[in-house]
Amino acid sequence: MSAPAIEFTGVSRWYGDTVSLADVSFTADAGVVGLLGHNGAGKSTTLKLCAGFSTPSTGTVRIYGDNPRRNPDVYRRVGIVPDHSPPWPFLTAREVVELSARLHKVPDYREAAARAIATVELEPAADRRVAGFSHGMRQRVKLAQAIAHEPDLLLLDEPLNGLDPTQREHVIALLIRLGEQGRTVVVSSHVLHEVERMAPRVLVLVNGHLVAEGSTAGIRQLISERPRRVLVTADNARALARELMSSAAVDAVRISDGAIEVETSEPSQLSRELPAAAGRTQSLLRLIRPVGDDLESVYTYLHDRARGQAR
């Protein structure tokens, strides 16, 4: 049996007192894998370790069963799109991609570079210097240099950053296609809906911990199942709160400064029952607003849930 494209075993990475990655284990093989998490969650560290740009403090990282830091030959099968490193500004896009293909030992590197440039739709600007490129164009140069040697494993750190909507669609379609071809494509992002469009499998990182792993639909389900809090302002708040407490959709009710904070695991049911309860108590609803529904709260919930602290 051949070794998986990526194999993390008990990997931790810390810088001084800061833990960037804590005891992370996973494997990745053919298909698109989304690496999801907020800024500073450990996504870039994970990709750096995959790419061999960093060494784990503890644990092991294997790429096709090998350590890329010890055996650079592994890079024949790996393409990398770093987040914060634009290619050499004094080279043209074509020179960058040809250089990459050549260094990856592609026999007909000019032809390979032309193909990659066409794939990312950069042909009109191919002979212009990277220095004059927009952020989106640089992203496409980075992508072209990463795919020119047709790698089996593609590591992309926030590849959609700086792209306009049309380019995003194009890149997403390209990554899906590469995944369907049997390549392993690891894409980091902090935007869930972006990841779920291209990645059937998602790894969620929060504060360096791998807090959820599985199908995109499964992660979406986990997120939708988390308790929600809704702030309700109404005229007859106390009566409405009492009425809501009898509802099966409501887990808890608190009143503070005349506003009702409702905790529910069934937000859809609550949205149906709340107007009815208001009608029964003759309360005029003035405001209904979700609390803590931002992405950060979702990650925090997944983190707490993974550590058995979520309510």
Binding site: A51, G52, F53, P72, D73, V74, Y75, R76, V78, I80, P82, H84, S85, P86, P87, W88, V96, L99, S100, L103, H104, K105, Q145
Partner: peptide
């Protein structure tokens, strides 16, 4: 400093 070294290191060239 500018990160372009990544594009050289991520190749199968002997160090």
């Amino acid at each position: 400093e500018d990160g372009t070294i990544l594009y050289l290191v991520a190749t199968p060239q002997p160090r």
